[in-house]
Amino acid sequence: MFYNTSVLEEAGIEVPKTWDDFIAAAEKLKAAGVIPIGLGGQPWQERIMFNSVLLGVAGREFYAELYSTLDDDLLKSDTMRKVFETFAALKPFVDEASPGRNWNEATNMVAKGEAAFQFMGDWAKGEIIAAGIEPGTTVGCAFAPAIDTAYIMTVDAFAFSAMDGEDATPAQTLMAQVMLEPDVQIAFNKKKGSIPARLDVPADSFDVCAQTAIKTLQDKKTHLVSTGLFGVPSAVSGAIDDTISNFWNSADMSPEEGQAQFQQAISYAK
């Protein structure tokens, strides 16, 4: 979660730690004429926000179990309904022009102070740095409101194809080795705005946001994966995107209907 520090200060609110706090803060911000959530209204971004709510309301164990088992009982549970209710309560806090917006435009809204919060991966830091802002200053970062700490990871992977020729394999091995060197990891991830793929890299030269993330990841219990890329078959993750996006954009759909459609779509896709 990224936020604009000065906007929050002006409205006199702290960084919210629970979703109830967040909704109260968002109401204040809206009354003050700020867009509470800078959202890029594309399915994958809506999913990021939904997963933040899921994790924040239901907790990391529920999150991990739900997406690894896709179990009907969990999907139909009261906890899940609470998730949908909270998610639905966020609908009034985005601006009209949100549908279809790109993520970096939303990041810029936060950087400029037009919007207060954005739920986005740490790649948003690239935009923030490009806007001349050091992450952790004007634009701050925090974990989205949650009952326990966890980190939903998105991982970039490199794949090497099998090649003919004696030199090829050693060259590929060397490339992989170089990429995972601590120095390379530090230099690369500072530019990209992400965190190293290995846990033993010294964190002190990174910005505050990355330091928090690296520190959090030392505890293995915090490791969760993004549903968009890993963990579930792409048919299921597509169905998840469809229903979440449909629910988010249908003003008159109740949380119960949203939950029922979510459960149904997953059971048809799995």
Partner: peptide, 8 residues
């Protein structure tokens, strides 16, 4: 529209 909002 990218099929959106939602899949409308």
């Amino acid at each position: 529209t990218g099929g959106g909002p939602g899949f409308s």
